[in-house]
Every structure is written in structure tokens, then in C-alpha cells.
């Protein structure tokens, strides 16, 4: 019997992968995001981190090398004469890290809390949902900014702040799909068999929400990259000399008239990363649940 079970799981995964492979746009997104992650991981090997911080006033606002700028500076230089390519590349480490780390933190906390309140229900459900109502009534950007201001700048604190703003929505989604599952007969059977709440949650309830979780988390990465960029753009994000895409756009806006390439490159990075993640999310949704495919 165990064999049959394992075989079934494998075939479902294979089927999802097969469907995903057919979706050209989703595969394109996956490829792009993989390349971006690879570049971010190897950033130090391509250009040393010091290059991203080294100022050279002679190169202030230099154009990209292919547009008549100094050789070797593919994206040109910023207002302090720092190599923009190096800053974008090293910025991708921080931006992508924030995007993925916050999504995973949201997934971990949100899915457990959502499954718990959805399954247990009653007073706990009321209490948690009313508390979440309070969180969702606060505009998320402002809430995240206040939390970052209170805890101080830094990547970990930004991640905490952004995750906090996204957990309520995630809890709601997981809760509503758990509410459906909790009514199924196999859950009743497990409960009648004397299984503990935690066992039922981890073994029966959560596995059935995996599709929702994956799709939501992938979509979250895209929106968190945008949120992180907006926070840095507003000046409450990472510490200034450190490069981050949103912060780079913010620095570049001072020179919008004379050197628009300063916002062009980090801006394109933000869009490409966010776009790739959302097409991948769409593809995953269709692959996991073909009924949803329109």
C-alpha cells in the first residue's frame, strides 16, 4: 500500500512539472529568475563588492560604455562616480534576498497560523482574525516604515517589517482553503481515529493546501520585491552606501534630467525580477490546478 501511495505522489509531481514545462512564458520567467539568482550569488566573483562602493568624481554621471561613456562601465556611473553595473549587481543580492526571505517567512508563519485558526475555529479564530483586521487596516507601506524606524535599519529588520505586513493576507487565504478541507470526510475519519490536532494539520490539512501555498508564495516574491523597493525609495530601508534596487532608483532621481540612465538600469532590474516571478506564479497556478486554466 505504501508503494502505491509513493507512486501516486511522484506521478502528480511529474504531471505538474510536465504541464509547467509546456508553459513557455512560465519557463521564461523561471529561466530569467534563475539567471538573476545565479548572478546575485556570484556577484563577488564578477565584480568585487568594493567596486560598488568606490567613488571616483572624475566619472560622475558617466554614460554607459556602449553609449559613448568610459570603457568597462556597462551601465555608466552614478552621482558619486560609482560603477552602476557593480551597484545593480550587488544590489540584486539584497533585493532578491529580501524578496525570497520575506516570502518564506510569510509562508512559514502564515500557513501555520492560518491552518490552525481555520481548523480549530471558535474563539481562537475570532481572536486572531480580529487582531489581523487591525493589522490590515493600516496601510502596509506605512506600517513597514514605522516598524523599520522603530527597530532600526538593516536587512533583517526590513525583512521582519515586510513579512509582518503580508502575514494577515496570507493567513486569510490559507484559512479559507483550510475551512473547506476541514469539512472533508477524511479529516473527520482522522479525528475519529484519535489523531492529534497537530498531526492532522501537518499530515492531512497542510498537504492539501500546498498548491495554494506555492502559488501565493511565488506571487508574494514579486510583490515583496516591489514593496522593498518602495521602502528604500522612500528612504527607510537599507543603510545608504549599500546598494539596493529601490535605493538606486531613489539616488538616481536627483539626476533625472541629466542622467536618466541612473534610474533606467535599476528600474529595469526591479521590473524584470518582479515580472519573471509573476509569470512563473501564473504558470505554477495553471500547472497545479488545470481547472483554473482559462
Amino acid at each position: 500500500m505504501t508503494d502505491a501511495l509513493v507512486f501516486k505522489k511522484e506521478s502528480r509531481l511529474k504531471e505538474v512539472v510536465r504541464r509547467l514545462k509546456k508553459d513557455r512564458l512560465a519557463m521564461f520567467g523561471l529561466a530569467v529568475i534563475c539567471v538573476m539568482i545565479l548572478f546575485a550569488l556570484m556577484a563577488g566573483l564578477i565584480v568585487p563588492y568594493d567596486t560598488a562602493l568606490k567613488m571616483n568624481l572624475k566619472l560622475k554621471l558617466a554614460l554607459p560604455s556602449w553609449a559613448g561613456g568610459p570603457a568597462g562601465y556597462w551601465f555608466g556611473c552614478d552621482g558619486y562616480g560609482r560603477d552602476l553595473f557593480a551597484r545593480c549587481l550587488h544590489g540584486s543580492r539584497i533585493s532578491l534576498l529580501i524578496g525570497f526571505a520575506t516570502s518564506i517567512a510569510t509562508l512559514a508563519v502564515g500557513s501555520l497560523l492560518g491552518a490552525l485558526v481555520g481548523y480549530v475555529g471558535g474563539k481562537l479564530d475570532d481572536l486572531v482574525m480580529r487582531a489581523l483586521d487591525i493589522f490590515s487596516a493600516i496601510p502596509s507601506t506605512l506600517f513597514a516604515m514605522a516598524v523599520v524606524a522603530a527597530m532600526g535599519p538593516g536587512i533583517v529588520n526590513i525583512c521582519i517589517a515586510i513579512s509582518l505586513t503580508n502575514i494577515p493576507g496570507f493567513v486569510r487565504i490559507v484559512r479559507s482553503s483550510v475551512l473547506n478541507i476541514a469539512e472533508q470526510e477524511y479529516i473527520e475519519a482522522a479525528r475519529a481515529g484519535g489523531a492529534s490536532i497537530l498531526y492532522i494539520l501537518v499530515k492531512h490539512v497542510l498537504p492539501n493546501t500546498v498548491g495554494t501555498l506555492i502559488v501565493q508564495t511565488t506571487a508574494n516574491v514579486a510583490s515583496m520585491i516591489l514593496t522593498a523597493a518602495t521602502l528604500s525609495f522612500l528612504g527607510l530601508g537599507i543603510n545608504p552606501p549599500q546598494p539596493e534596487w529601490g535605493a538606486l532608483v531613489s539616488e538616481g532621481k536627483e539626476f533625472l534630467r541629466t542622467a536618466p540612465h541612473l534610474i533606467l538600469f535599476p528600474g529595469v532590474m526591479i521590473c524584470v525580477a518582479s515580472f519573471s516571478m509573476s509569470v512563473l506564479g501564473d504558470g505554477l497556478r495553471d500547472a497545479l490546478d488545470p481547472r483554473l486554466r482559462n
Binding site: 532608483v249 528600474g267 521590473c271
Partner: peptide
């Protein structure tokens, strides 16, 4: 899809330019 992947401030900057 392309539009939804843009942060508002970036579109704003391009429009401003």
C-alpha cells in the same frame, strides 16, 4: 502582466522625465 510588475514610483519617474 508587465504593468503589474512595475512599482508606481518608477512609472512616475518615467512620466516625469
Amino acid at each position: 502582466l508587465l504593468l503589474a510588475a512595475q512599482p508606481a514610483f518608477l512609472i512616475g519617474l518615467v512620466l516625469m522625465l
